[in-house]
Design a protein around this nucleic acid. Sequence first.
DNA 1: CGTACCAACTGAAACGATTCAAAGACATAT
DNA 2: ATATGTCTTTGAATCGTTTCAGTTGGTACG
Lengths: 338, 338
Amino acid sequence: MSQTASIKDVATHAKVAVGTVSNVLNYPDRVSQRTKERVLNSIAELGFVRNDAARQLRAGQSRTIGLIVLDVGNPFFSSVARAAEDAAAALGSVVLVGDSGQDASREAHYMDLFQEQRVQGLLLSPVGDVAERIRTLRERGVPTVLLDQLADEDHCSSVSVDDEGGGYLAARHLLDIGRRRLAFVGSPTIRQVAHRLKGAQRAVGEVEGADMEVLDSAGQTVLAGRQVGNALVERGPAGRPDAVFCSNDLLALGVMQSLAMLRTIRIPEDVALIGYDDIDFAISAVVPLSSIRQPTEALGRTAIELLNEEQESGGTKHRAVVFTPELVVRESTAGSRS
Amino acid sequence: MSQTASIKDVATHAKVAVGTVSNVLNYPDRVSQRTKERVLNSIAELGFVRNDAARQLRAGQSRTIGLIVLDVGNPFFSSVARAAEDAAAALGSVVLVGDSGQDASREAHYMDLFQEQRVQGLLLSPVGDVAERIRTLRERGVPTVLLDQLADEDHCSSVSVDDEGGGYLAARHLLDIGRRRLAFVGSPTIRQVAHRLKGAQRAVGEVEGADMEVLDSAGQTVLAGRQVGNALVERGPAGRPDAVFCSNDLLALGVMQSLAMLRTIRIPEDVALIGYDDIDFAISAVVPLSSIRQPTEALGRTAIELLNEEQESGGTKHRAVVFTPELVVRESTAGSRS
DNA sequence: CGTACCAACTGAAACGATTCAAAGACATAT
DNA sequence: ATATGTCTTTGAATCGTTTCAGTTGGTACG
């Protein structure tokens, strides 16, 4: 029926030139009160809605920012995404969220997609090695900010949290409450996880007689955690660590589920457990979960800020912001045993 | 520097007409092997990337589907969103997710935005009264499928879960384990919540001597739940209900946190607690949470299917799919007291 | 009265893809 | 040699905006 009215239809209806209609929309001050009213009436009458594709084509750039995360189901990322959306909205932009699911090919797919959309910029929590890709993107006018991963400052901007420091904090805490046989659970192929592991190893190295084994998990989800937990249960009391540090809270909750299933293993008495991210659900776990808190809102907000700086500088100036994580102690690591 | 090469640049570089380049991209069979190779080489050499805005402008429609949810932070919605994304990807479309935060104006904002983008279609979990709006959208060629809310079939397609049935299931279960003083927690201004409440009231009406009070929560989050929980704690044992039905799991987890803080209230002995949605975290709660499970993947997948049907029928045929929820019993409502 | 200036408005030219009628090239049949 | 058909390629027209040089009409000033 009416399908969609174009700016030309509005112009005809209001008996003005198309340029005038465009001005009403974009530079209201350039238009006299009388004509403005006439045009606005016609717009309402015809139900005109701007065609963003046409505007974008002419403008050469969209009002869209691409965001690629490792897992939207992870509250850490959804929290960062929300903060980024809010910050972008304040600047009149929209954030498009893509989920790479820690898969390099899906990541590449979204990068292609965003490039086709000529996004204003890209926020990326990378899986694979993207340095080269980011360079070409910048050459083509798409600034990129690395999210949750430190970047070389003269190469690319980034917002991250000190993962090694966080790892150290977590392990140090487990050692402080008297544990000596630690286990680290995570997928060290993910850079953030590798850093957390490194920090934890440093803490372990500082304490005589302490050691830590590394349990590679298949993914970073509750399910993956449950699998690791089951493996631990099967080992029997003698072979089990007395403290477990999981590289994120989902894993930790999964491990906790498995351990708690066997009523004989007590948390924290037999096994202390600490996670990472401090998601909302950590506090309401079977045993409230100790964790490392990351400033998610600040991450999202700052990422947008840096993107803005990149745009304004034409992609020449880069800045790397690093936030400091914070230890949150709850029951899962309460008290000391010794 | 190179900024972005256009199809025209590629044509010049490969010494062919622009139409040929377009054909290589869209109808490879129409082009001879030799020219195809030449063109593909030029594309690679110039680093050409299709401009989606231009394509869309010409095509009149985008390959984008809009999805507006009440809260992306809620695992229920993020799970539905992910399923929808996967289903859309299989059809070569992308899903754009907007978060209304249960705010009618933000909802309207996203609807405007998506309309400007000329999305293929809209999946909407509505806050306000959108019937009129949906009608105009369809007139303009944007089919809409209601998500998580039943629609009048000769008006609009929808995918939903039988909320009243779910509410009945939950309350009936509380009554079955011997509870008589129920409380319902939620914001009945949200339609889904109102239906769950209605179902619960039906169940209560069937049992002699049972009653249920309604506690209005400010929102549907863990935080809102904690507030309600604190209020319950302050009442003292005599004034407290012996069973609480929360309209979603986030609320239930919040209530649980508050109640568990006071070590004197035992779950389920003193207060039985049941949530709704069966999110992943329900099982790992302090006291594993009973809940009503909704088939989130099926919801997301079916929503995309229905959208497709709408498109193919030109928005004339509508279908309303209703799924049946399922009771999941865990410790928070275990055993009987009487 | 002539000149300058200003605000308001006009309308054609981009933007970069897709589409499609038409032309070209070549082989086969008559 | 001509006609017919198939396969490939061409390039202008189109989509709906924004932009910008240029026109119009009116007011102010000397």
